[in-house]
Amino acid sequence: MDIILASILTLGSMGIIFGIILAIASQKLAVKADPKIDEIVKILPGLNCGGCGHPSCQAYAEAIMKGEAISLCKPGGKKTLDHLTEITGETAQSSEPMVATRYCNGGCNEAKEKYEYTGVKTCKVAALLNSGYKQCTYSCLGFGDCAKVCPTDAITMNDDMLPIIDKEKCIGCEKCVIECPKNILLMAPKKKRVHVRCTSLNPGKTVVKVCSVGCIACNKCERECPFDAIHVKDNIAIIDYDKCTNCQKCVKVCPRKIITVDQVQESQQQVHT
């Protein structure tokens, strides 16, 4: 009986004493946080995507109060920027919204396989084994590492084992860009719809052997472009998005059909016409 009573009393009084001391200490040692931080946190999207370089929206809010630029939040876009301008009084140029774009059309039907891969089904692991199981070393490996890291489920894998990016859902956090071991996901302006879906720097002869949708650097698009926006350099056609006007002349002329118009936009266009 004594033991029971003693233990109850000891633990109980310890709890009460510690509690009281902590309560007093937290009052005396309270740190006043800037109320603006809470305001900013409310405005930020709260996705904690990390695209701004800070671990969370809370951390970014604190960083803003310490002088961090207010234009780093990509998911928030213009609306968030306007609100932030109101609160902080800083002005910042809103940058053009960027979305992740896939620069490869080499799905399992187009790009030939080098060997049968039976390992762990992630691109990261597959890429370690002799630069991946595709004959083209620039090819998409199709295990959807990008889809797994996407915080807004904007990326889905299609039947051809290629990631399809929903431009409307993409918040531009660049997580998939960092994740892709083949570096075929890159950021491109949201408004631009014409992309060269290949990053292979191999000469045309090699490309033809390994993939049916690889750029062979034939220069036809470069000659066709009326705006001097597309250039072939190092065996690959690259579009200068500052000059591109979505005129789609290069799309028609490309013999390999690798310059394509965004599918989402295309279907919307069809609805309009």
Partner: peptide
């Protein structure tokens, strides 16, 4: 003295948690 040594785990955890909380408050300040 109270013959309740069997409580040492829980009381030690309690006292350590309390001390760390206190230290954290101090450092934050």
């Amino acid at each position: 003295p109270l013959d309740i040594e069997y409580l040492q785990i829980i009381t030690f955890i309690l006292i350590i948690a309390f001390l760390v909380q206190l230290v954290e408050l101090f450092i934050k300040k």
